[in-house]
Computed example of a mutant assay.
Amino acid sequence: MSFFRVAVTLLALTFLAGCGSKFQTYTGPEVTRVVLFKEHRTLQLFHKGQVLRSYNVGLGFAPEGHKEVEGDGRTPEGHYYVDRRNPNSAFHLSIGISYPNEMDRAKAYELGKSPGGDIFIHGRGKNVSASKAKGDWTWGCIAVKDREMEEIYAMVRDGTPITIYP
Results as ranks from 00 to 15, higher is better:
residue 120 F to T: 00
residue 76 P to L: 00
residue 48 K to R: 15
residue 71 G to E: 05
residue 138 T to G: 02
residue 82 V to I: 15
residue 54 S to I: 01
residue 102 E to W: 09
residue 37 F to G: 05
residue 2 S to M: 13
residue 89 S to P: 11
residue 154 A to W: 04
residue 45 L to H: 07
residue 57 V to M: 06
residue 52 L to Q: 14
residue 46 F to A: 03
residue 35 V to E: 07
residue 123 G to Y: 08
residue 28 G to K: 07
residue 46 F to W: 11
residue 34 V to D: 03
residue 94 S to C: 09
residue 10 L to E: 08
residue 42 T to W: 07
residue 133 A to Q: 04
residue 50 Q to K: 15
residue 68 E to T: 13
residue 71 G to P: 00
residue 122 H to C: 04
residue 35 V to H: 10
residue 110 E to Q: 14
residue 34 V to I: 11
residue 45 L to R: 02
residue 140 G to M: 04
residue 157 R to I: 00
residue 109 Y to E: 14
residue 6 V to M: 12
residue 13 L to D: 05
residue 52 L to R: 05
residue 145 K to I: 00
residue 31 V to M: 00
residue 86 N to F: 05
residue 45 L to V: 02
residue 132 K to N: 10
residue 88 N to P: 02
residue 134 K to G: 04
residue 74 R to W: 04
residue 14 T to K: 11
residue 32 T to L: 04
residue 14 T to Y: 13
residue 79 H to Q: 15
residue 52 L to H: 10
residue 19 C to V: 15
residue 30 E to Y: 04
residue 126 K to I: 13
residue 91 F to M: 07
residue 125 G to N: 06
residue 117 G to D: 01
residue 14 T to V: 14
residue 48 K to H: 14
residue 56 N to F: 08
residue 20 G to L: 15
residue 145 K to N: 12
residue 148 E to I: 00
residue 33 R to P: 02
residue 75 T to G: 08
residue 98 S to V: 11
residue 128 V to L: 06
residue 45 L to M: 05
residue 75 T to I: 05
residue 137 W to L: 04
residue 17 A to K: 07
residue 64 E to K: 14
residue 92 H to Q: 09
residue 140 G to W: 02
residue 135 G to T: 08
residue 117 G to N: 03
residue 105 R to H: 02
residue 166 P to T: 00
residue 120 F to L: 01
residue 103 M to W: 09
residue 32 T to W: 05
residue 41 R to T: 01
residue 163 T to H: 13
residue 88 N to G: 10
residue 142 I to D: 05
residue 134 K to P: 02
residue 163 T to Y: 10
residue 143 A to M: 04
residue 69 V to H: 08
residue 146 D to F: 06
residue 38 K to F: 06
residue 3 F to H: 12
residue 144 V to Q: 01
residue 164 I to A: 03
residue 37 F to R: 15
residue 40 H to R: 15
residue 97 I to N: 04
residue 165 Y to R: 14
residue 161 P to Y: 03
residue 144 V to Y: 02
residue 3 F to Y: 14
residue 123 G to V: 03
residue 20 G to D: 08
residue 146 D to I: 03
residue 15 F to C: 13
residue 127 N to S: 13
residue 131 S to L: 13
residue 140 G to N: 03
residue 107 K to L: 09
residue 140 G to K: 02
residue 62 A to D: 11
residue 150 E to Y: 07
residue 159 G to R: 04
residue 129 S to R: 12
residue 139 W to Y: 14
residue 25 T to H: 13
residue 14 T to H: 12
residue 6 V to Y: 08
residue 163 T to I: 11
residue 148 E to M: 02
residue 35 V to Q: 07
residue 107 K to P: 00
residue 157 R to Y: 06
residue 28 G to L: 07
residue 82 V to R: 00
residue 138 T to P: 00
residue 47 H to R: 13
residue 124 R to M: 12
residue 43 L to I: 02
residue 82 V to W: 01
residue 82 V to P: 02
residue 144 V to D: 01
residue 47 H to Y: 12
residue 19 C to G: 11
